[in-house]
Design a protein around this nucleic acid. Structure first.
Lengths: 151, 151
DNA sequence: CCAACCTCATTGCACTTGCAATGAGGACGG
DNA sequence: CCGTCCTCATTGCAAGTGCAATGAGGTTGG
């Protein structure tokens, strides 16, 4: 029996934000461990690198601001990740000649070589996830679209 | 045309671990903002509190270790969250009489009152998520089960 | 031209985190 | 008993984080 003083039943293990957080950590960690051990880079650094490895839409105007927009990270986080990557020799930072407030980021040869190793790993990992989830992958995609596109 | 020196195409925005991470942050943040502003508690603290608010399976043996197992958090994180909660007067820590290595955590009256306010909010939020996702919620659950249950 | 107001990137600060080390306590074989 | 080995919780440290403040640079209207 439930008396008036009992808390309402609530189970963290079936709370969607919690489940998403644990799933995110679990899936990220498996790949992150690989690039951490092999190249000494962290998740924020990985996110920055991915964008630099993409030729993307036309112009190669890749500034801290551009990355901040595309990646879900604070600009200070991007800035510090970029500084670490520069210190490790994976990227170069140069002041934009046209607008001197902007800092352009670009992979060095070393960075390009690392990404040539890393991207196939990431793509294989994505394939593995899709294979593991099988039919439920489509459902996941639909739900994530709904969550990520909301307002 | 693609030459041999181009990196393989890879889009972070469609990489499942990344999408999960952003979705997790987005869904957690909306609720976390509420309890942060109203009660000054953080996500780790919230996770601890939820477990203390549950009568759970039988015995009320809620130690740091128990919480660490149930919640996806390091024991040092649990320990520090518990210390902050104790300092704020939401929980009490007592050394277990039977096994003096264990620290039992329990809500204070203040903590119970807060949770009585908070849990309905969380449950309403869960309802809102389910309503928003509609048919895709079932797909999300299936996929999260598959991810979370893996090995 | 320049004052007021933007935008960009970095940084100072207080705080959190992960990890390894610590210390206290318990279990158990001999 | 007691030495060895386990478990539990905390803590020291170095590193990462969010936020606000800073400073440098750009833009625009008068």
């Amino acid at each position: 029996m439930t008396t008036r003083s009992d808390p309402p039943p609530f189970d963290l293990a079936s709370f969607t934000p919690y489940r998403l957080a644990v799933a995110a950590e679990k899936t990220s960690e498996a790949l992150a461990r690989q690039y951490r051990e092999r190249f000494g880079i962290s998740i924020p650094e990985w996110r920055v690198l991915v964008h630099l490895a993409q030729p993307l839409d036309g112009a190669a105007t890749i500034s801290v601001r551009d990355i901040e927009e595309r990646v879900a990270m604070e600009k200070s986080k991007v800035s510090r990740a970029a500084s670490r990557l520069e210190a490790s020799g994976y990227i170069e930072k140069t002041v934009d000649a046209g607008d001197r407030r902007l800092v352009r980021l670009a992979l060095t040869d070393k960075g390009r070589r690392m990404m040539a190793d890393l991207l196939p790993l990431a793509m294989a990992y994505q394939q593995k996830i899709e294979a593991r989830l099988a039919e439920s992958f489509a459902g996941l995609e639909a739900a994530l679209d709904a969550i990520l596109d909301a307002e």
